[in-house]
């Protein structure tokens, strides 16, 4: 079976600092994987390398067996990679509905159409409204995003990413710092993602990680330290060492 996302010898240098070092990583279709590691382990950099936001210094990225190392971010997104941002990245002066609309329009390939008004595309608008409903955002649909409370912005961040109907979803600390109510909505959405969507989750919340993941990859100082089932990782002394040794963060496995 071909991996749907694979890296070979992936390396990224910032100046002389090596943030990702020779990472070989395979994600199988439909898998639920978590990527954990202490702060500064290079987890977000890893996501940025996978989506094409950053270019690797060496090594390659494969999507469904095809080398996409040289493809830009937009082209990889078109091939089904989706991601959420750890630091909320939205369109602040636009409304909640407009934010989701932009994503749906890009996904459905109508975003460059110039004649029919944006609200004239009924199926797309309907999908926007469904997404808003799913994330409990319908009542703030016409609010300007920058005036929204943080929790709602995180929900919107998620809705925008899912509007692209990605087949591989990279979640960068989706529930970090969220009020319980919003965190619950996001966890529910993650749980209900279709089985054929592949999910890679970065998070420091070990309860979430161990409940969610079928397999866990541990990244320390840019290298893969261990990989295995939650039970194997929990029992792995090196992992414990890495977390404790680095001062630890959040709850420990």
């Amino acid at each position: 079976m071909t991996a749907c996302l694979e890296t070979r010898g992936l390396t990224k240098l910032f100046g002389s600092v090596c943030v990702t070092e020779g990472v070989d990583f395979r994600l199988m279709p439909g898998e639920r994987r978590a990527l954990i590691g202490p702060n500064g382990a290079g987890k977000t950099t890893m996501i940025n390398l996978l989506t094409g936001r950053l270019r690797p210094s060496s090594g390659s990225v494969f999507l469904h067996g095809i080398d996409v190392t040289r493809l830009g971010e937009a082209r990889r997104i078109k091939r089904g990679i989706g991601r959420t941002f750890q630091i909320t990245s939205l369109f602040p002066a636009l409304s909640v509905r407009e934010n989701v609309y932009l994503a749906v329009a890009e996904r459905d390939g109508i975003a460059a159409r110039m004649f029919r008004p944006a609200f004239g595309w009924k199926p797309q608008l309907q999908r926007v409204d469904e997404l808003l409903e799913r994330f409990h955002l319908s009542d703030v649909a016409n609010e300007t995003v920058q005036l929204l409370p943080y929790g709602k912005q995180r929900l919107l961040e998620f809705a925008v990413s899912l509007a692209l109907k990605p087949t591989i979803l990279l979640l960068d600390e989706p529930a970090a710092g969220l009020p319980t109510a919003e965190a619950a909505i996001i966890l529910e959405v993650i749980d209900r993602l279709p089985k054929d969507v592949t999910v890679l989750l970065i998070d420091h919340d070990m309860d979430l990680v161990f409940r969610f993941a079928q397999r866990i990859t541990v990244l320390v100082r840019g290298r893969i330290l261990a990989e295995g089932t939650p039970a194997e990782i929990a029992a792995d002394g090196r992992v414990r060492q890495a977390y404790l040794g680095e001062g630890g963060h959040g709850r420990h496995p």
Binding site: S89, L90, F91, L94, R107
Partner: peptide, 11 residues
Amino acid sequence: ENDGRMRALGC
């Protein structure tokens, strides 16, 4: 508003 986010939408 946010060109980086638009790129991440595949634009």
